[in-house]
């Protein structure tokens, strides 16, 4: 236990600048301000995997790691759509997940935002729209506010998408 504690102290906070520029930090501050203005400083996100290959999930999860640490901007991920302000939907919507996605959308309290993350969520990507197992892309099933491109998009892209969705709010 002491060895671990020493290691924690030695490493210190490793949330650091990602690149030579401070673009991510500035993006983060922007996000923090937007969340403060529109959501009283607390944005709860429910992530919905509607049939993705988990590539986008890895990137979304990376936003929580010590490098990106999205939590410090007032954004957190929740266990239930009823706690959420925003849905992050990934993947093409598979036939089996169609009803679940619709129910998730219904269960989210207003004001709610939907961000479709990744190319599959936008136009079914490599899985293709003509697939027997796929009901359509996310915007075929529920209203989408913002689409994040990329296969998979980076955490910075995802944060940019979240920010764009908040800015679109009336």
């Amino acid at each position: 236990m002491l060895r671990m504690l020493r290691q924690i102290v030695r490493i210190g906070t490793i949330t650091e600048r990602l690149a030579t520029s401070d673009a991510y930090e500035r993006l983060g501050r922007e996000l923090e301000d937007a969340v403060k203005k529109r959501f009283a400083g607390s944005l709860a996100i429910r992530q919905v995997d509607a049939g993705s290959c988990n590539g986008c999930e890895l990137e979304i999860h990376a936003a929580n790691n010590p490098y990106y640490d999205i939590e410090r901007f007032g954004v957190h991920f929740t266990a239930s759509p009823r706690f959420a302000d925003m849905l992050l939907v990934t993947g093409p919507v598979s036939v089996n997940m169609k009803t679940a996605l619709e129910m998730t959308y219904e269960a989210t309290p207003d004001p709610k935002l939907v961000v479709a993350v990744g190319d599959c969520a936008e136009h079914c990507g490599v899985f293709g729209r003509e697939n027997y197992a796929i009901a359509g892309c996310v915007s075929d099933i529920i209203p989408v506010d913002v689409v994040v491109h990329g296969c998979p998009p980076t955490p910075s892209d995802i944060i940019r998408g979240i920010l764009a969705a908040i800015d679109r709010m009336p």
Partner: peptide, 8 residues
């Protein structure tokens, strides 16, 4: 902090 990040 114990996870080496800033936290909320």
């Amino acid at each position: 902090r114990l996870q080496n990040r800033h936290g909320p």
